[in-house]
């Protein structure tokens, strides 16, 4: 059992999230996902199991997919993070009205078109995992997509719309690169 105040000795943490630098004081035992959600107000990363199986909390840490529930905030000191909130290009204008289309990343657009989500709880982790997959494999086969996405559990969709969405997004992203 712990003694009083043992956990209260906050440490300074500096990290960049979605291109913006954040400085904060954080208890050494605080999970990175709790820091993102509670201290930075970035509630897009979800907590589904806290033991690294469900993948809802997946974010990019220094460019690679990782579970933000299996890491302490202090371990991310100095790191460059990307969360689902940073996926869409930032328009700078007021946010789109609900039901209207704002700017979306090709992955988000493809999830929308292929019904790659129902309740939406796994979606942020699924998107970030798919983003990571397409970074390392621009033209994955269906089996490679399924293996890549097996890091995140979805209970609603049966994964079919998600797999189709990642295939479609991969094509869009490849076409975009050829144009450049």
């Amino acid at each position: 059992m712990s003694e009083p105040n043992e956990h209260s000795q906050a440490r300074p943490v500096t990290l960049r999230v979605n291109g913006t630098e954040h400085r904060g004081q954080v208890e050494p035992r605080k999970l990175l996902v709790d820091f993102l959600r509670e201290d930075l107000g970035l509630t897009g990363s979800h907590v589904g199991c806290e033991h690294g199986i469900c993948g809802a909390c997946t974010i990019l840490i220094n460019g690679e997919a990782a579970r933000s529930c299996l890491m302490l905030a202090v371990q991310a000191d100095g790191a460059e993070l990307m969360t689902v909130e940073g996926l869409a290009p930032q328009s700078g204008g007021p946010p789109a009205l609900p039901g209207k289309t704002g700017q979306l990343h090709p992955l988000q657009t493809a999830f929308w078109e292929h019904h790659g989500l129902q309740c939406g709880f796994c979606t942020p982790g699924m998107l970030m995992t798919a983003y990571d997959l397409l970074q390392t494999n621009a033209a994955p086969s269906e089996a490679e997509i399924r293996a890549g996405l097996s890091a995140v559990l979805c209970r609603c969709t049966g994964y079919q719309g998600i797999v189709e969405a990642v295939q479609a997004a991969a094509e869009t992203l490849r076409a975009g690169e050829e144009d450049q």
Binding site: G102, H115, G120
Partner: peptide, 21 residues
């Protein structure tokens, strides 16, 4: 018809219980 609720859920703007402080 594509779902209207997807926009917020895809951008991390959903409002689940734990998102309220």
């Amino acid at each position: 018809v594509k779902r209207r609720e997807d926009q917020r859920l895809l951008t991390g703007q959903g409002a689940y219980v734990d998102d309220h402080h």
